[in-house]
Design a protein around this nucleic acid. Structure first.
Length: 658
RNA sequence: GAUCCAUUAGCUCAGCUGGCAGAGCACCUGACUUUUAAUCAGGGUGUCCCGCGUUCGAAUCGCGGAUGGAUCACCA
């Protein structure tokens, strides 16, 4: 409505032709609004209707032959350049496939259509119909016989030569980035092709694509801090998934022998050029295979996807020539550390020796770190960055691999590998641990680490262990960060360049907070405040019920005023308060209420509250609760707020509400 | 979370040791019937990221804050 009101204030069309110097100073967006009004004035809808293009711009260029001049075409797209030359005008019209030059001449269009050009700007979307020909300078073009306005653009586009460079604007307004920076579109088209090629590869090997829950009661399958969300109806907190692993392996137990999922996972951690809080993970599991099978699958998949999408297994990433042709080099973690100048861990007998070695090499460790964990730190410090060409690192220490199968001849190690390319982890895989007894012990060990302060350690997942107890075949499992793969294959240096909308801090008017306190506010601070000011602006309430309850049913509830005689926290409960109430009957009534996180028990003694008194007793923490105290619940910015209903102390105990 | 850097017109960027806010593109007016970063003549459109301070005077100096980037730490 505001929009319409504004438009009526814009001058009529004829004003455009006589813009004087005062109007010339009006901002460009206002000029465009005036042009929009002028289009309406002419009876043209500036936000047009469906338009059937006969060809894409690319098709026009491909199909044009000089001996077939004057074949007609109809195209649609965005004006990206406008070169007026008196009674002639050249437009570059871009669509998803490319661009085509439009030649608009007053003789061909007629005065009326030609004057439309005055109301069109770079950024507007138009349809053009006419014969295709080649200009004197040799460019295949369309000679406009008919121009159709399909959408007026009210914002000027960034400069044609430099494009949009401000990275913050590029990410926040990706649509503008896509319009003006053509390589961005290429990257995202490639991303789509890569993911299709992965699906095609896996489907071709007989894998079944499945979907598993993204909200988990127990977040498992990786070492990461989760996001927490809340289910209102069930009144439980849930975690956004950090991995796909445990559900997919339940499917292996269920007899789906080759499954994969390409899905979003969420990890509550920092944001940088390699990390986004949500990212796309591929995980696959193949029954009766193992980590050797996964190595073969990984190198074949990555190489074939590159071949399919890029036409080559030789790629360039940040000035490095990388050859993805299988087979990839394989070496153990111990060998890798040794090869790149680190100590020989085969000569390190125990945790104590490993810790001494770490101190000697200035590698930071915690006192409880074990030999395997320290080996992985040495790997990170000495070897990782050198693994430019695709390399499988095998034989991982058990401590950092709670879901992988133990090495049969070395219980310190597991059958696991990570694939590295350009010094970065690309894939992670293992022979899955299918021994439920061992798995339970690993979870217990993880819980110990959790208690030691590692809040990324796995939580016990009893149902998953139960699934293993039914019997899971020996299985190979693999995980690949799809964003990382896309980065590698599109030579993108930041993950944000392969995410259409990377995570950004929301813009708000935070600068306003810096303004000095107003004189009134200062005064309020100095003087005693007579009444607390309550800010209701952020209150959200539940939608009202649409169903009716009949009057008889309602009147059966016995609502009474009650006085709080005593109130105490229930031992061992985080939520419950135990109230001793005077309900007017002469006998004390006990009610338990789960509002401890909102109130200190002492502050409620003596208050007059409202309770339903004719509910059957209900045992909570071994105490019978006789009725229910009434509270008011709402939420503010996603947080639940609760207030116990407290009423005028003049109301006597036992007074009935009606 | 730590350190460093950046933030000036719609976009890309200048603006020195404090002294009236600048350019190119875009935009507006006029000319121009095959241009292509069209050209020619004229027009400068601004919360210099926000606030406080120093100063006769701050885009510029100091302090605090916001947002973004790079590096580091943790994670894929």
């Amino acid at each position: 409505m505001i929009y319409l009101a504004r438009e009526q204030q814009t001058p009529p069309a004829e004003a455009i032709d006589s813009v004087d110097s005062a109007q010339a100073q009006v901002k460009e967006i206002e000029v465009r609004r005036q042009k929009l009004a002028a289009l309406r004035e002419r009876g043209i809808d500036p936000f047009g209707a469906a338009f059937a293009a006969s060809h894409t711009t690319q098709q026009v260029l491909e199909r044009f032959q000089d001996d077939q001049e004057e074949q007609t075409a109809q195209i649609a797209g965005r004006i990206m350049s406008k070169r007026g030359q008196g009674k002639v005008c050249f437009l570059d019209v871009h669509d998803q496939s490319g661009k085509l030059q439009v030649y608009a001449k007053i003789d061909e269009l007629g005065e009326e259509q030609f004057s439309l050009l005055k109301l069109l700007d770079v950024g507007d979307i138009i349809g053009v119909a006419g014969p295709v020909f080649r200009t004197q300078r040799g460019e295949v073009s369309i000679r406009a016989k008919q121009l159709t306005v399909l959408s007026k653009s009210l914002h000027p586009l960034p400069e044609k030569w430099h494009g949009l460079k401000d990275v913050e604007l590029r990410y926040r307004q990706r649509y503008v980035d896509l319009i003006v920076n053509p390589e961005v579109k290429d990257t995202f088209i490639k991303r789509s092709l890569i993911i299709s090629a992965v699906r095609e590869f896996l489907n071709g090997r007989g894998f079944l694509e499945v979907e598993t829950p993204t909200m988990h009661a127990i977040p498992g399958g990786a070492a990461a801090r989760p996001f927490i969300t809340h289910h209102n109806a069930l009144n439980i907190d849930l975690y956004m998934r950090i991995a796909l692993e445990l559900y997919l392996k339940r499917l292996i137990v269920g007899g789906l022998e080759k499954v994969y999922e390409i899905g979003r996972v969420y990890r509550n951690e920092g944001v940088d050029y390699k990390h986004n809080p949500e990212f796309t993970l591929l995980e696959l599991y193949q029954a009766y295979s193992d980590y050797e099978g996964m190595m073969e699958l990984t190198e074949q998949m990555v190489a074939q996807v590159a071949q399919k999408v890029l036409g080559s297994m030789q790629i360039v990433y940040e000035n490095a020539q990388i050859d993805l042709t299988p087979p990839w080099r394989r070496l153990t973690m111990v060998e890798a550390v040794r090869e790149y100048g680190g100590p020989d861990f085969d000569a390190v007998p125990d945790d104590e020796a490993a810790r001494a070695l770490a101190r000697e090499h200035h590698i930071e460790i915690e006192p409880h770190y074990t030999r395997g964990k320290i080996l992985s730190l040495f790997f990170d410090a000495y070897a990782e960055e050198h693994l430019i060409q695709p390399t499988f690192i095998t034989d991982y220490p058990i401590e950092i691999s709670p879901l992988a199968k133990k090495h049969s001849d070395n219980p310190q190690m597991v059958y696991r590998f990570e694939a590295f390319v350009y010094g970065r982890e690309l894939a992670n895989a293992f022979s899955e641990l299918n021994d439920p007894i061992d798995q339970r012990e690993r979870f217990v060990q993880q819980m110990r680490e959790r208690e030691l302060g590692d809040d990324e350690a796995n939580m016990m997942d009893e149902d998953y262990v139960a699934a293993l107890e039914y019997g899971m075949p020996p299985t190979g499992g693999l995980g690949i960060g799809m964003d990382r793969l896309v980065m590698l294959l599109t030579n993108s240096s930041s993950i944000r360049d392969v995410l259409l909308f990377p995570a950004m801090r929301p813009l708000n008017d935070s600068n306003a907070k810096n303004e000095p306190a107003s004189p009134a506010a200062e005064a309020a601070k100095a003087e005693p405040t007579p009444a607390e000011k309550i800010d209701f602006s952020k209150v959200e309430i539940e939608p009202l019920f649409k169903d009716f309850v009949d009057f008889d049913t309602f009147s059966k509830s016995d609502f009474r005023a009650v006085k709080v005689l005593a109130c105490e926290a229930v031992p061992k409960s985080k939520k419950l308060l135990k109230f001793t109430l005077n309900d007017g009957s002469g006998e004390n009534r006990t009610i338990l209420s789960g509002i401890r996180e909102y109130y200190e028990p002492e502050e409620l003694v003596g208050k007059t509250c409202i309770a339903i008194t004719n509910l059957p007793p209900r045992a909570m923490m071994g105490i019978d609760s006789c009725g229910m105290l009434i509270s008011a619940v709402h939420s503010e910015e996603g947080q639940e707020r609760l207030h116990l209903l407290m009423v005028d102390d003049h109301i006597p105990a036992g007074a009935k509400l009606c």
